[in-house]
Design a protein around this nucleic acid. Structure first.
Lengths: 170, 170, 170, 170
DNA sequence: GATTAATCGAGACGGTACGTCGCGTCTTAGT
DNA sequence: ACTAAGACGCGACGTACCGTCTCGATTAATC
């Protein structure tokens, strides 16, 4: 429904009707719209963003950023995630729910960890690295509705790595 | 109202009543809650985020990030901006409105331009630089409700500059 | 509410609030103020205007006119009926609703039928007889806010019968 | 406007716009919708209902009833009168205004007076005679939306006269 | 296999905000 | 000085969705 008619049309009443289910039954399973979105989003997000670690950590990062871009701009689960992230900005409860799920974080951590194992990152502050890796991309997508080209993603990955590499002469 | 009682309590009805004004009058001036928020936010945002360019472009960037962090986490205008950015995730009209206002972009561009004039940045892609500068910060605040310490901001600025510096031997 | 504060104060909103009921619920049962008035009026009207047929058809008519006068000038149901009849003058839908209910007609027909059975009326045109019986009374009440005395009603009934009697020497 | 779009569409705003006049100006001349209707109705009503007294008082009455029927069912002024009479049922102020104007009364009195001068009526109670003459007609029109045929009017007049004639042998 | 209990869909319920409309007053240019 | 134009505070309109609450009908479990 979110995809077809937008967030505003995604009412509890509508959800129940579409599911041919009583309204009460919906409330029995999820007490807020946010929980529905999260459940609808989380599993798919994990799948779409899981990048199998290869030998080439550089390429993994590019691929990951590409996956994130696709997730946020074209995937249904990504749309749900953005709706949630949006809701989180004006509803503390949703913010905490979302923080607890850590949708993006989990997959990003995997990529970062793999890169660190290859020694191509210069710090142990994983949260900072995650933010540096995906922050610029997420920021542009959220605030400009950016649809990056593959080239743009590659450049973005390259610049992230350039910055975050340990000094060469070691 | 947004600050005192939260976004959900910020109804058109409530706004009109608090302003001791007819409901119609509110609609006459702003047709959307988003427009009200934008007007309430934009001017203050510009003021709070305007960093007077000094000779030390490095320091300017730190100061700017600090201003952005304060804006997003403690300022009323920043709260309004976050509410707007949130709404933009599930309402295309709001997204465009927000894009048109370019609240963060304007001030960020000034900082980046000043830094570029000092020759301390390695690319002419201003949008990319803006995203690299503020993206990680904004991302963490939006998705973790992060309240960064001054030290964290300094580190963030340092790492941004390190990455984006032109190769030394040129 | 109609009685206490007048027709203008009888708003759907007010009705719902007084009944401690959601506004939607009122609309679910009656889609128009007119339907509410009719329902509130019809049953009581039937009761107030039901004159048990006696042997003396002349007296029945006097009694009936007296009942109608009381109904229109002092009864709550009558006030509702007048409001309806008023509304019917500028709203075709209400006019039809009212015609369908035939509030006055039903009771009047009973009285006329009984009188006809006694052979004291000179025509079979029941509608005409009804109009001749109650028309003058209703006209004066509606257009002069007349509060007739019992004597006036008796005179009115006598004059109606005088006119409408079959010629004596038959 | 009343005729074209109905009573509900006859708003003060609309009246002013149609007259290409400021809203305030309308209020300066008439303080309520009722006064506008009355002014629009009274003069025309007087003209439409003025029956030049002939020698044949019987015929005058038929003609008068026919004029009243036409007035109430087809004339614009009559529509306005019905709207007023309707409004009067739920607004005491309008009721008094209407009583003061005595739209129908004036012309009816003339007809009755003329008939009395011919000695064809049996009482001096003019108000009662007026009510007996027009009451049945008005009642049927107001409550059944009756469009009487000429024959029906003739019968109505005949029956009125029959009833109200002085006893022959005097 | 019949009886009881739990669960479900459907949708009515009391609330409340929505955006619109008309009210009667007040303000402002323009004549 | 007066006007048209229209903004203003007000409050009812009828609608939508909220989350809770009955209801029968349908299963499922028990006897």
């Amino acid at each position: 429904m979110l995809v077809e008619q937008g967030y505003a049309a995604m009412t509890m009443k509508g959800i129940a009707e579409r599911a041919k289910v009583g309204r009460q039954t919906v409330y029995r399973w999820w007490s807020t719209k946010a929980e529905i979105l999260l459940e609808a989003s989380a599993a798919d997000a994990a799948r779409e963003l899981a990048i199998p670690a290869s030998d080439d950590a550089d390429a993994d990062i590019t691929e990951y950023l590409w996956a994130v871009a696709g997730f946020l701009t074209t995937s249904d689960a990504g749309l749900a995630y953005r709706a949630l992230l949006g809701e989180a900005q004006h509803d503390r409860a949703v913010a905490e729910l979302l923080r607890g799920a850590d949708v993006l974080g989990e997959s990003a951590r995997a990529v970062i960890d793999s890169a660190r194992a290859h020694g191509i990152l210069d710090t142990d502050d994983v949260d900072a690295l995650i933010a540096e890796m995906v922050g610029p991309l997420v920021f542009r997508i959220l605030s400009e509705d950016w649809r990056p080209s593959h080239a743009a993603i590659e450049k973005m990955a390259r610049r992230f790595l350039h910055r975050s590499s340990p000094p060469p002469g070691r």
